[in-house]
Each structure stands twice: as C-alpha cells, then as structure tokens.
C-alpha cells in the first residue's frame, strides 16, 4: 500500500510539470504585450520598458518559466495587473467559496445518486426504477445554467422561498448546490444501478443468500461494497467536472467564487490571477484523482495481485 502511494505520487511529477507549462504558455500565447496592458494603451514607451524589466519579460522564456514555477511553489503568483494586490490574497477567499460549492454539490450528488441507484437496481423494471432512470436522463441532458435559471424562476421569483443570488447562508446554498450537483447525481445513479445489477447476479450474492442472510444484509453488506468500486472512480471524475461547472453556476447565481473571478479577469486580461486560478483548479483535480485511486485500491484488495 505504502509503495503504491509513493509510486502514484512520483507519477504526479510529470503531470504537474505539464500543467505548469500549459498555464505558463497561456500568457505567452495570448495576443498583446502584457506590459502594454498594465501600463495602459497610451503609456509612453519607456514606462512600458520599465514594466517589462520589472516583470522579467526580457529574460529568455525558460528562465521566465523557471521563475514562475519557483514562485508558484511558494504560493507567490505575483501581483494582479488590475488591482496590484498580491494574487494569492485575491484568490484564496474566492477559492474557498468555490471549494465549498463543489464539496456540497459532490456530497449532494453522492447522497442522491447512491440512494436512487440502489432503489433502481433492487427494484429492477419497477415503476420506481423507470421513473428514476427517466429523471436521471433528464438531469444528465439538461445544461446546468438553464436548470439554475429555472430554479431561480420558480423558487425565488414565483414562490419567493429562496434568495436568487449570493453565497453563505443555508438558503443561499440550496439552489446552486442542486444546480451543480444534479448532473453528478444522475451520473452516479446510473453508474450505481448498472454496477449493482452486475454485482447482484454474481455467484457470491447467491452464496450470501444461501447462508440465510436477510435481504438487507445481502444488498448493503455484500452487494454495495463491491458495487461501489467503479462508482468511486466516477465520483472522482465528477468532482473535477464540478469545478468546471462551477464557473457557469457562479455566474448564474452571482456567487463571488473562482469561476466568476476567472471570467472577470479573463475579460480584464489580468493574467497572473487567471494563471493562478487555473493552476489551483488543475492541482486540486489531480489530487482528487490521486485520492480516488487510493480509495479504489483500498476498496478493491484484488488489485494487489497486479
């Protein structure tokens, strides 16, 4: 187990190098001279030169990359070109908002998806199964910005039960989490169902019944643990796509998170902030996958053999 974790950590190194190169190239592939952007359209040439000097833009590209990685490792992403505040100061509060949104949405997806999937599998072809699978298909096909708008239309505007925007109070959390978590719930429900159905037809389930165990123990102790193994992978991937989905959801509900920050700063060409935000998202994604791999391994002792 320990060896496995070490090996997976070592495998992260090339991934992280790739990510940093991509993020770094963002700035250099974008049109326009950064110094011009900072100094403003009509700045005199020597001001621009000064800024170039200060930012190290005249250094060779590999040196710039090396400096970028070195600073990033210390969580120093420089200063925002727009606000001149240190990027990390701008980023962290927003990051936590988005992280909260993603975590709550994931929990919501897992909870709803698992229950729905299990009911569907245990009562295969029943009315409940067919309805759940229809709803799941709906949840899967619906663009989440539209779904968010529809929720807002009903619960905020028509019924007035929930506040349409913002983040923080329990009432504010409900709609964004449902918006963002529904697709995940649908994916998890479908995965859980097919995985459960697969497991329920296995020989060891028949053995469990032949031992005289109650149906509940057979399903929850013997079937579910095996069925969860593939579901865990899906949950991990889902968390990654949630971070992406958060950008849209945050815009719809005017939540002051990373998604909104990224959009705002892209429009403002504030590259240090965009770079840092993208890098943080990528790193979170990579580590979530690492955790998924480890828990997958923990659940499925058989992988030891390979």
């Amino acid at each position: 187990m320990f060896q496995f974790i070490v090996r997976r950590l070592l495998q992260l190194i090339p991934v992280l190098i790739g990510v940093t190169i991509l993020v770094f190239s963002l700035m250099h592939l974008s049109p326009g001279n950064p110094a011009h952007i900072i100094a403003g359209e009509s700045a005199p040439p020597d001001t621009v030169e000064q800024i170039e000097e200060r930012l190290g833009l005249n250094d060779p590209i590999p040196v710039q990359y090396f400096n970028f990685v070195k600073d990033a490792a210390m969580l120093d992403f420089g200063n925002s070109w727009r606000t001149s505040l240190p990027v990390s100061e701008e980023l962290w509060p927003k990051f936590w908002v988005t992280f909260e949104l993603a975590v709550y949405s994931t929990l919501f997806s897992i909870f709803l998806g698992l229950i729905a999937g299990i009911i569907s599998a245990v009562r295969k072809y029943s009315f409940a199964d067919v309805s759940i699978m229809l709803i799941a298909l709906f949840g899967l096909s619906m663009p989440n910005f539209w779904f968010g708008l529809m929720l807002m239309q009903w619960f905020s505007i028509k019924l007035g039960w929930l506040p349409p925007t913002g983040w923080g109070t329990p009432e504010q959390i409900v709609m964004p989490v449902i918006t963002l978590g529904t697709m995940g719930a649908a994916v998890i429900a479908r995965m859980t169902r097919s995985s459960m159905l697969d497991v329920i037809s296995q020989d060891y389930i028949r053995t469990a019944r032949a031992k005289g165990l109650g149906e509940r123990i057979v399903i929850y102790r013997h079937a579910l643990k095996n069925a969860l193994i593939p579901v865990v992978t899906v949950v991990g991937l889902q968390f990654g796509s949630l971070l992406a989905g958060a950008v849209l959801t945050e815009s719809v509900f005017a939540i002051n998170g990373m998604g909104k920050l990224i959009i705002d700063r892209i429009l403002a060409r504030d590259f240090p902030v965009v770079q840092a935000a993208v890098l943080v998202i990528a790193i979170v994604f990579v580590f979530v996958n690492l955790i998924v791999d480890i828990s997958y391994k923990f659940l499925n002792k058989r992988i030891d053999l390979e």
Binding site: D203, Y204, R206, G212, N300
Partner: peptide, 23 residues
C-alpha cells in the same frame, strides 16, 4: 432464511467466484 445455511447448506460449482472478494 432460517433453514438456509443452518439446516440445509449449499455449495456451488465455481469456487473462484462464490466467495465475496472484499471480505
């Protein structure tokens, strides 16, 4: 259920798959 595994037990053809892999 009270009879299964208690008064009447059963063993199956495929020993490789008849035991639960995670316990």
């Amino acid at each position: 259920r009270q009879i299964r595994g208690n008064e009447i037990s059963m063993i199956f053809q495929e020993p490789m798959t008849s035991l639960n892999p995670v316990y």
